[in-house]
Design a binder for these strands. Structure first.
Lengths: 337, 337
DNA sequence: GGTCATAATTGAAACGATTCAACTTACGAC
DNA sequence: GTCGTAAGTTGAATCGTTTCAATTATGACC
């Protein structure tokens, strides 16, 4: 039904080879011929069939990006960075959501492997990287995103979460706070564990400083509110004066709980609060929240670059593993007027 | 390099036709043969080439979903609904972000047309539906999402924004509020205009009720805060007792502005506040915000169903146009203790 | 054992683009 | 007028799957 190169060739009075040349190597075709062919293309509304091209070429012009949660601004911002770079290279990005579900992730990966995508960027759900290794062994480059150190045989882009935790804790300590609380969990999430570890190390450097651990079941607003209530209850007796939350959703929930109720705590005077991720809602909270910022778009763009490098990589050559450093965005929740 | 059906056939000692049958019509092949072939597939790590299959079949197993903003929870929830239904039908969803940019949208559409996708779901950036019409005329079903009435020749799924505006206003009026303010803009966004129109109609039904219009430049947190400051300034003299915001981001910003400063206004006692979209941050605000809820996942799922209907549609048959009714989620910002 | 009906298998054609060796044409130089 | 070279153009082969008419195997029945 749709027009093919053959139809275009017939209409323009040239061979299919010439049509293909016009499409892909216009420089090697006489201008008059190019015009003839272009006219035929326009008249027939010809759109090249990607499947046929790909079948012949053996590889597609698309890369896949599988993220844990498309609802999370962190990942959508990252995707933006990837897409920008990919577009510059003439590739398109297929965005897929694993929803933190290993089965979904696998399903997407299988689809993409059948598609023979150019490469796969993935922030893996679990620790089992076997499916990714299989795909890679079959010739599709894989880059891990937001997941660093586990397996050195994968190229990866990540952020130094331990350093991020340290930055947050140091900021609180520099402000003179000594009775800290860490809110986050579950601890099996590597990011959470790393941020905690980094913070603990800083606290241990300062004599007289301590940090209590409040575990949450998830990194959500609701869990933040629950933790906040628990915190408020114990704040007066324990004299907490600084709180570090493992991400901004938690921090926002905590802030609400602390500011509400019969005896609200003042932020930052009584309790200083630091979050993580620097999502827009953090800056927009009642008391804008100091947060640890990650270079989201840069992470996405870099992941794409590693994919290209991975493609051109020689057999023995080691894989690249980029680790970014986070930085602190200071706001009223720690240095309020 | 990668194994093909031919390799599998050779290894299993059968013909390529049989391998294809095992893959697509396993019922028509003897069990013993199926086993042989399956073993060969496993041994070779064979993964069918999607491009070849699609070339032969003429159509792909993927549908495209082009949204205005992947960062907006409304669209990601919608995407979830689409994906669920698509998966049930054995199709996969390619998610693309137009970023409210007509050029990006066009680029994605072109890619998808070359890909010969099964169909396209799109929440169009602008009013120019010509590119969509062109694609549709070339045989790819198109369904408009979150965009109703303009062009009756497109199948579409949308929500009755005028009814939503009416619900919000009626709720405020039922609570006895008479001096209302509408915050939203720009008015060229159809959703905003419709919500405003619906609200105005309700206000006009009640003697002694009035509603002022506060225009914003965007539907963002920041714009909400600005509008909130303007509101607070005039609230005491104008005696506003009810505010309806065109979406939740605005409402959250407004709430912050009203609650802050030297002379905070109390919510809902002095001013009742209603938002729109019912995003999770609305329920999580300091004073949880009453909001007009849209069936986001259902919208996405329904859009997919319309795509299937569109595909099976006979020439003369009219296209389906589904319009959902929104509902009110009442919270503390209007009926606080 | 022969006859049929049915089940299972085969293999060549087709999908639509790209590639590339072979061929044609154009044009100067001599 | 011939030759050589470069510039353009051609068209058959190819990618890997599916389809389907043709063929062969299987088994039931007398």
């Amino acid at each position: 039904m749709a027009a093919s190169v053959k139809d275009v060739a017939a209409r323009a009075g040239v061979s299919v080879g010439t049509v293909s040349n016009v499409l892909n190597r216009p420089g090697s075709v006489k201008q008059a011929t190019v015009d003839k062919v272009d006219r035929a293309i326009a008249e027939l509304g010809f759109v090249p069939n990607g499947a046929a091209r790909q079948l012949r070429a053996g590889i597609s012009r698309s890369i896949a990006l599988v993220v844990l949660d498309v609802g999370n601004p962190f990942f959508t911002d990252m995707a933006r960075g990837t897409e920008r770079r990919a577009h510059e290279e003439g590739l398109s990005v297929l965005l897929a959501n694993s929803d933190e579900n290993a089965e979904h992730e696998l399903r997407h990966l299988e689809t993409f492997e059948r598609q023979r995508v150019f490469g796969v960027l993935v922030s893996p759900v679990g620790d089992d990287l076997a499916p990714l290794r299989r795909i890679r062994d079959r010739g599709i480059p894989v880059v891990l995103v937001d997941r660093g150190s586990e397996d050195p045989t994968f190229a990866s882009v990540s952020v130094d979460d331990e350093a991020g935790g340290a930055i947050a804790a140091r900021h609180l300590l520099d402000l003179g706070r000594r009775r800290l609380a860490f809110v986050g969990g579950p601890l099996r999430i590597r990011q959470v564990a790393d941020r905690y570890r980094g913070a603990v190390a800083e606290v241990n450097k300062v004599a007289g400083a301590s940090m209590d651990f409040f575990e949450t079941q998830a990194l959500s607003l609701d869990e933040g509110r629950l933790a906040g209530l628990a915190l408020r209850e114990r704040a007066r007796t324990e004299h907490y004066d600084g709180v570090f939350a493992a991400n901004d959703l938690l921090a926002i929930g905590i802030e609400q709980a602390l500011l509400g109720g019969e005896e609200p705590l003042s932020i930052p005077h009584e309790v200083a609060l630091v979050g993580y991720d620097d999502i827009s809602f953090a800056a927009a909270a009642v008391v804008p929240i100091t947060s640890v910022r990650q270079p989201r778009e840069l992470i996405g763009a870099t992941a794409f670059d590693l994919l290209l490098a991975e493609r051109d990589r020689d057999e023995g050559q080691p894989r690249e593993r980029v680790i970014f450093q986070p930085e602190l965005a200071v706001r009223a929740s720690t240095i309020g007027s």
